[in-house]
Nucleic acid binder design. Sequence first.
DNA 1: TTTGCAATATACAGACCTGTCTGTTATAGT
DNA 2: ACTATAACAGACAGGTCTGTATATTGCAAA
Lengths: 192, 192
Amino acid sequence: MKAKISRSHPEASPARRRLLDTATRLFYEGGIHAVGIDRIIAEAGVAKATFYNHFPSKDELVVAYIEEQDRLGRAAVAALPKQSPRKMIAAIMGRISGAVVAGGWRGCPFLNAAAEYPDPTSLVRRAIDARRVWYHDSLRDLLAADGDPSPSVTASLLVAVSDGLLESAYLDNPETVPALVREAVARLLDRR
Amino acid sequence: MKAKISRSHPEASPARRRLLDTATRLFYEGGIHAVGIDRIIAEAGVAKATFYNHFPSKDELVVAYIEEQDRLGRAAVAALPKQSPRKMIAAIMGRISGAVVAGGWRGCPFLNAAAEYPDPTSLVRRAIDARRVWYHDSLRDLLAADGDPSPSVTASLLVAVSDGLLESAYLDNPETVPALVREAVARLLDRR
DNA sequence: TTTGCAATATACAGACCTGTCTGTTATAGT
DNA sequence: ACTATAACAGACAGGTCTGTATATTGCAAA
């Protein structure tokens, strides 16, 4: 038995899992360029050769970090209970408040990474682009189902408010953010 | 004659001016940690000893960069023609569109810097805080003069939309941003 | 048992980083 | 003319960065 494990590059290798978890924490807490490979492998308890067996370069690790955060976000949205479009939008925007009250919020990982990767053709930036397209289009579809006359414009505004309030939770007063989320949704959606 | 020039540390020393201009360009284009002192002094045509005569450390140069961007932004707002509070708000928010159409937009320099400086007690973060407080309070005062029933909340929403649309101009479609600015102001102010 | 693979530890190359130091040149004030 | 200042050029120290190489250990399948 034992199932077939791990020919070549097991996606679920314990070492790889530990590397990605550690990198996720350190990249998010300290910034990407500021955290070196040596520190990641030391805290993950993994040899350097093992790291380079799983990831061809540091940038590929960064891409894996971004893509996993994207995947987790999409899964969380997909797991939301089905309800009316209007309530779905409120629930998605409400996730901003959830991220804040958890504590240790250091800003949106995608915006933080984009600040460190100026080249729009880089793999990191492409991964960030995919995330943003998904987020915008998800909101746009819900708005269309809700009867919004200009769902794409409203979606862009909701994206902007999301980004802005996530930054505000990092740089300003986190406690005020949940109320601001509700207020923003109310003003941008109501009586159109 | 010649006026009294430059005892000790002339704030307007040509070398210092060149250093700060070059650092501003390189930090903004490439990110802060990604740009080294050696490159800055090479492109500025300044000796390393001269650099360390004007700035005690690289972080102090970063602070000078942030503070100057803040100062320029405040001056631009102060130079706006006096008009009704409502129009002043529209003009301030309209500066977002102006930054975008100029081309070469690489995101808000303050948000980009904050992404690279996790320590909220650092001088860089304090400079960013000061900027954000000024921006929020400026909008809040204008909103109060305009009769907004909750000027602080509306100001926070306008700050969030500003941050979000500046990021959108960097990561999404810059051409759509001017229209989104107008739409956001209309929805946040007219329907409160 | 034998073979193959994943992981270990460690050392190294070559580049780059910040910051210090020495020494020289030019200019401007007294 | 003399002195102080600011800039120049460039070497250097000590550390960190990414990525490669070497050599060894443990395990699991055939």
